[in-house]
Design a protein around this nucleic acid. Sequence first.
DNA 1: CTCCTAAGTAGACACTGTCAAGAATGTGGA
DNA 2: TCCACATTCTTGACAGTGTCTACTTAGGAG
Lengths: 191, 191
Amino acid sequence: MSRSVGGYHHGNLQAALEDAALDLLETTSAPKISLREVARRAGVSHNAPYHHFGDRAALLSALGVRGMAALLAAQEEAVASAAGPVERVRALGLAYIRYAAAHPQTFALVFDPDYCAAGSPSAEMAPLIARNEDLLGGEVAALVQEPGWEGRDVMALSAALWSTVHGMAQLIMLGHLPLEAAEPALDALVR
Amino acid sequence: MSRSVGGYHHGNLQAALEDAALDLLETTSAPKISLREVARRAGVSHNAPYHHFGDRAALLSALGVRGMAALLAAQEEAVASAAGPVERVRALGLAYIRYAAAHPQTFALVFDPDYCAAGSPSAEMAPLIARNEDLLGGEVAALVQEPGWEGRDVMALSAALWSTVHGMAQLIMLGHLPLEAAEPALDALVR
DNA sequence: CTCCTAAGTAGACACTGTCAAGAATGTGGA
DNA sequence: TCCACATTCTTGACAGTGTCTACTTAGGAG
């Protein structure tokens, strides 16, 4: 399927470019990734990417969508294999944190306003954000039925939990907190 | 004091460069700030900054130190004018969040590992980080003497509170949460 | 006054993102 | 079958960037 390299028509350059850039993201922060280096890795000229992405930001933005999808999938999988409302929320948060620790540059890209603006998300990003909010909101709604959590405002509690988990992910990713501190700290707050 | 502009000797170019860059930070994210633009604003040649900063990252790093100092000062001031352990911790967190909302680019710079590495902080940054940890640790230590908080692990609780506040600051700064959601969300968790 | 050093300038280089124009390739219609 | 055409990719150019080297100037110590 993949066309012989060297010819004019690559076959699936769009995906190849995203793959190359995703590779670079393992070791390099998004702002330092160069479009020309990505093209070089994909074995095409420095201008080939412009036929698949409007500009550099568009490529990074596409990577952000991929990252957000992976983050969402990690949370959904974690929730599915947990029993009980409290345990499910815990699993969701830990999955979020572990994804950030495992793919720090990708996680940072997803929340970088220069490429993935929260105010005006791309057409592919918006539904992912919505699904994530639904996922968290649903679990919190189940949580507030539990003894000890009854009557809490779902919106406020969701915002607080998201903040805690997001902040912890950020601080661990930056090296301000060790990954092992995540579970005890979470439990210190939520009990 | 300030030397006549146009001559070879500026007088205090180091500070002038930081001021110009800080101005740019009000509207532009750190990775997009160009050293040559900063020099232009300071009215000097594109190479003058190299006599005061080793490279571009060093200038941004110095701005990060300024930002961290301001963030710390905001917290200290808020704590000083609050009564009671719970209220003091609350004030500290809100000051942190409000600083991030008021100076988003500067706040982001302080936590940008490309310029302000958490693992190996600069000589000026390290004591500020230590002072901030002492500030939070001290307030939490006082908090766990209060009824309803007795016996909690200070380290774990500090980490959790920092995470919550930092995450909320981040999400508000990015536009994922409105600033007005901060207080209710904080209170939903801490009661 | 002289000379040294710190603080500025000018010029060059490699690299970047992006625009314009041209060449190769595959495709639908006669 | 053959030929216009749109797509994909290439080459070349331009302005802007960070940083290196070399030169010029100002101010202060002796």
